[in-house]
């Protein structure tokens, strides 16, 4: 890919703990990730050289973890802090068409910010959905399978429906509850279902444990109405290489090369490059 690498900000506060593997995954597809503490965006008390501006980046990702201990509700405190400090910049970022994504706790945070399922104007707002406690009542760390059935997710515009891949899940609160009269069906009609939980053979309605949290409609991830904000519960960044699969040793020979998650990130980074080329001045400002 020509040009400077895609710059991705991985937003962190205390308890954000999946930033390392997400950075590895982004690097594996040629992007330049940087873990940025929220305080570096806020600027207060931070040396000049370590301050950052959202405009410096092509891509903003909210990694998984337990931001602020998941007190109140998962992601709620991080969302409140983001809203009060860089809320306007974030809205501008979304409206500029740059991708904003959240994985696991990041998905919970984007939901708390009102960005998912979100509004057509890309503005922050009160949450219209929530990620509730798993049906099992506890944390679930297990291999899960996802299927892309087509939708508005811009990086997947060229990807035919039916892609099934394995990505591990690890969460205690991932059961999607939709408000505002929305259902999995209405979201699907608008192309806002990113992934569904399926069985190991790709079959729909797999039940527990392949749907690890009991999410209605087996919804594992969502996009916003413009297909540029996305969130998902499972962790493609932990399926970035072949040797991260739970069963690689069943095949003869060394596990080499990418895992299925790498395709996910490759499409996202390709999309960021395309957007940069399409939008005049779309390159992340060099500071």
């Amino acid at each position: 890919m020509p040009g400077t690498p895609v710059r991705a900000a991985l937003l962190s506060i205390e308890g954000t703990n999946n930033d390392a593997e997400l950075a590895v995954a982004l690097r594996s597809v040629g992007a330049r990730p940087e873990v940025v503490h929220l305080k570096q965006f806020e600027g207060r008390g931070i040396p000049r050289g370590e301050r950052r501006h959202l405009d410096d980046f092509d891509l903003l990702l909210f990694p998984g973890g337990f931001s602020a201990g998941d007190s109140v509700r998962a992601g709620a405190i991080l969302a409140a802090r983001v809203r009060s400090s860089i809320g306007h910049e974030l809205e501008e970022f979304v409206r500029s068409g740059r991708l904003v994504g959240g994985i696991c706790n990041g998905f919970q945070t984007l939901t708390e910010l009102g960005l998912l399922p979100g509004r057509p104007d890309g503005r922050l707002g009160p949450p219209t959905a929530a990620l509730l406690a798993n049906d099992s009542g506890h944390y679930e760390c297990r291999p899960t399978f996802l299927r892309w059935d087509g939708g508005n997710f811009r990086p997947f515009a060229e990807l035919p429906p039916g892609w099934v891949f394995l990505a591990p899940s690890g969460h205690a609160e991932g059961r999607i509850h939709l408000g505002n009269g929305e259902t999995a069906r209405t979201l699907e009609a608008r192309g806002q279902i990113l992934f569904r939980w399926v069985g190991p053979d790709g079959a729909p309605s797999p039940g527990y444990p392949w749907n690890p949290n009991g999410s209605p409609g087996d919804v594992a991830g969502l996009t916003n109405p413009t297909g540029t904000v996305f969130g998902l519960m499972p962790h493609p960044e932990r399926a970035d290489f072949a040797d991260q699969a739970p069963d690689w040793s069943r095949r003869r020979g060394r596990p080499v090369g990418p895992g299925p998650g790498q395709r996910f990130f490759a499409e996202i980074v390709r999309d960021a490059v395309r957007r940069r080329a399409a939008v005049p001045g779309g390159r992340a400002a060099a500071r």
């Binding site: 760390c141 991260q244 069943r250």
Partner: peptide, 21 residues
């Protein structure tokens, strides 16, 4: 084992549970 996150950091190549998924 399923209640412990054994995957975080993405470094776990041979997991605590082995075999077919």
């Amino acid at each position: 084992l399923r209640m412990y996150d054994h995957e975080v950091q993405g470094r776990t190549v041979v997991k605590p549970l082995h075999g077919r998924v």
